[in-house]
């Protein structure tokens, strides 16, 4: 390949990379705006939108609701999903394929279609705006991610280790907790993270099943965006962006350190 072709591909890809990253970053300066406007670039500097996030009960309550739902969903979906992934690994190929296909349907069904159905069912059973309602819907949405993450760990797991433990006299239960579980722990952990993020980010179902009594953060953000130009939205976004960046940087750092040692 000649230099010109290579150079133009590089330039093209650099432009794509900028287009992927830069738009998200515009929320950072907006979050420090002085006036209540979403004009870019903003004038002046203030921290009032960050303060608003914690002082305005509408925002602080939605953050707490979201965290509560996401933590419970992460626990529920990780347990049910991990157990299911273990079951799939022990099943015969044909039924396992069928069950796996069923378990990933939440990723395929368009969000609005399930949201309409869930809303209909929740109205009949008084689940609209309840913790149970959010946890039920979000756990269902998170299951596929846990099954896939744990399944990936299990597929590289050497089953002979279990046989070895058993032949040395360990009970099934002891084998599971001392051999299998520690070895698939990375998969479980990433499933847990995916489940948490799935719930924390979910907006379509939440838009249908929220009530004034209980709103999650994405619903609050959506409502604020459709109502007025409030930079508090940008402050939330910036905090979330910073948190994710720290988690991913820490993951990369630990990952490379472990590889070196």
């Amino acid at each position: 390949m000649n230099l010109f072709t290579r150079l133009s591909i590089w330039l093209f890809c650099a432009a794509v990379a900028v287009w992927l990253v830069a738009p998200t970053l515009v929320i950072v300066p907006i979050s420090f705006a002085q006036k209540k406007s979403l004009a870019f670039p903003p004038d002046g500097f203030s921290l009032q939108w960050y303060a608003n996030l914690f002082q305005n009960p509408e925002w602080s309550r939605s953050i707490i609701s979201s965290l509560k739902v996401a933590v419970i969903v992460a626990a529920v979906a990780t347990i049910i999903g991990t157990v299911a992934a273990l079951g799939l690994e022990r099943m015969k190929a044909r039924p396992a394929g069928l069950v796996r296909a069923i378990l990933i349907t939440p990723m395929i069904v368009p969000g609005v279609v399930m949201a309409i159905g869930i809303y209909a069912v929740y109205l009949d059973h008084q689940l609209v705006g309840t913790l149970t309602g959010y946890v039920l819907a979000h756990s269902m949405l998170a299951i596929p991610f846990v099954v896939i993450a744990v399944g990936a760990s299990l597929s590289v797991f050497d089953a002979r280790l279990e046989t070895a433990a058993a032949s040395l006299g360990a009970s099934r239960l002891a084998t599971f907790f001392t051999i299998t579980l520690p070895l698939i722990a990375p998969g479980i952990l990433s499933g847990l993270l995916f489940a948490f993020v799935t719930s924390f980010d979910e907006v379509i179902v939440a838009l249908f099943i929220n009530s004034p009594a209980m709103k999650t953060l994405p619903v609050q953000i959506y409502a604020s965006m459709t109502r007025d130009s409030d930079p508090t939205v940008a402050a939330v976004g910036t905090l979330m962006f910073a948190a994710t960046t720290i988690i991913i940087a820490a993951g990369l750092w630990f990952g490379t350190r472990r590889r070196r040692s």
């Binding site: 738009p23 998200t24 929320i27 994405p218 953000i221 965006m225 939205v233 976004g237």
Partner: peptide
């Protein structure tokens, strides 16, 4: 670079485009 758009919630990402 490909994954950065996933780091913030979909709603916030859309806010960036609105701006």
């Amino acid at each position: 670079c490909v994954l950065v758009p996933f780091w913030v919630s979909g709603v916030v990402r859309t806010l960036a485009w609105v701006i």
